[in-house]
Structures are given as C-alpha cells and as structure tokens.
Design a binder for these strands. Sequence first.
DNA 1: TATTGTTATACTCTATAACTATA
DNA 2: TATAGTTATAGAGTATAACAATA
Lengths: 151, 151
Amino acid sequence: MNDVNGRTRIPGTVAYRLGVLGAISENRFATAIAPLDLKPKHVGLLAALESAQGLSQQELATRLGVVPSLVVALADHLEKLDAIRRERDPADRRRQTLVLTDVGRALLTRCEREAAALDRALTAQLTAAQLSALDEVLSLLAAEAGMPSPR
Amino acid sequence: MNDVNGRTRIPGTVAYRLGVLGAISENRFATAIAPLDLKPKHVGLLAALESAQGLSQQELATRLGVVPSLVVALADHLEKLDAIRRERDPADRRRQTLVLTDVGRALLTRCEREAAALDRALTAQLTAAQLSALDEVLSLLAAEAGMPSPR
DNA sequence: TATTGTTATACTCTATAACTATA
DNA sequence: TATAGTTATAGAGTATAACAATA
C-alpha cells in the first residue's frame, strides 16, 4: 500500500499518518474545550470517573496510562473547578476516592457535544460504509496497540 | 456510531481514538528510531528534504507546520549527525538551503524500515480490504483536517 | 523597511524521586 | 516494611520575541 519500488515512504505509512492526524485531532479538541478551562487529559479523567465512580487515584493512573503524580495535578485542577470531590476511603484512610460532581457531569456533557461536533467535521466526507469501516479498523488498531482505555 | 441514547461517549469518538492511537504510534516510532539519535520530527524533516531537495528553512517550517526556530534546532541536530548540510544560497545570501547527505539518506532508509515494521505490527489483524479502506479513510481525514504534508 | 535565520527566553507537559501519612 | 498520595524538581519539547545579517 505504501511501497513504491519496494521502498516504504515515511509519509505514506499508517503509523506516520496516524501520528499526525492524532496530533491534529487532539489540538482541535483542546481548542474546543479551552473555554471550559479543561485539557484533553482532564476530560479523559472525567470520562473514566463517569464509567466507574469512586476510583482511587492509583487506579486512575493505571487506566489513563499516566504516572500517579500527574493524576494529582489533574485532580487538583478538577477539584478547583468543583468538577470532582476527593473522599477519603474510611476502610483505608490512605486512599482517596474521586467522585464526579454535578458540575463535573455538566462539564463532561459539554465536552461530549464538542467532541461530537468535531467528529462530524472530521468525517464529513465519509460515506456510511466508510464510517463503519473506520470504526471497525480503529477498534482493531486499538487492540493491536494495547490502547489504555478509560471505559 | 458512537451515540448511545443520543449521547456521545468521549472514548467512542473518532477524534478521541485518533488522538490516543496517534500518540501510541508516535511513541512506538520514537522508540524504534531512538538508537539512531533521531526523533520523529527529525525524520519528518529528512523525508521532506528527500522529496524536495534544497528547501530553505522557512519553507521547511511551513511544510512541517512548525515554527522557524524549531527548524533551526532540528537542522542543528541533523547537521551534527552529518545527515544534512547547510548551503548559503548565492542568489540571496540570507537563505540557507538544506541538502541531504549520503549519511542522511542512509538514516532515512533505516527509519523507513522501522516504519514499515511498525506498520506491519499495527495492521497485522486487518484484512486486505480493511487495509485499503483504512488507506482511503486516512486520506479523506487528512484532507479534512488540513494535514500539513512533507510530500 | 522587510525578510531569513538565529538566539534567548519562557512556558507546558510530564516523569522521577523524595517525602508524609497511613497500613 | 509497604502502599497511597503528595511535593519538589527536572527534563523534553516547542513557542514567542528580540536580534543580526542581508535584501
């Protein structure tokens, strides 16, 4: 597919194109949510919390594929926005359980709308068949890449 | 496609998945070429130079979608590796034309092999039909995203 | 006066490692 | 002694802005 005369041109590789496209997608999403004072990683944390309320920061770190100290920074910011609350686990007072507040849920909803709009713009030229092929292929690639998932 | 009960879940969006997948791809490529003392952006510059020899640093900055001062840093490093040479344009002595050396071409070839191997690993589970659908869809997405291309 | 390349500087993101408090 | 979270620190990467040389 990318080979010409047995040579693979870098800009034609799936890896290269995914990298560039991914950076553009993330940039656009970051721009869209900037007015909410959120960055993509914050949204990842909120989404992870929504699907599994009351995770500890360590668990979050694993799910998001980041280092625990980064979760601290993300949680600090989200707490300042009243989007989450930290609650001590009574059973083990070292652990802090993060819970989504109403404000956090509302923020997440607004982010979802932005993401949906971005998706529409991005996939505007795709037929329904191409769209479902994309969905399928992204899932296969994600599995192959061992993509950490907040789901 | 990503909507459940009229709600778009962030982790299901094309934008989100492209972002994560792109970051993973870039990381893997970065790891693969680290022994060559190169980063993905260096390879992007080499690839751009190969398809259009003798570009100025300004032109490169535009093609790569980065700021001119970053091209200086990338070119400094590549020059130290003897992968490129800077040549003053005799017609306009402010301009410096970057040219790929034999060392640079050899490095690029090794990067191409790494990229090809990465692609094989990434797309191992895809059928031929899915692979060509992916190719097509990536091109459409790239066009829609206004992806800067070193080609 | 405008443009090319460079340098100086600063900012964002994230990781590593040391530290505190609980266990 | 081990673990959850935090803090302090540092590094990579990249942008902005001031500057020098040339047009």
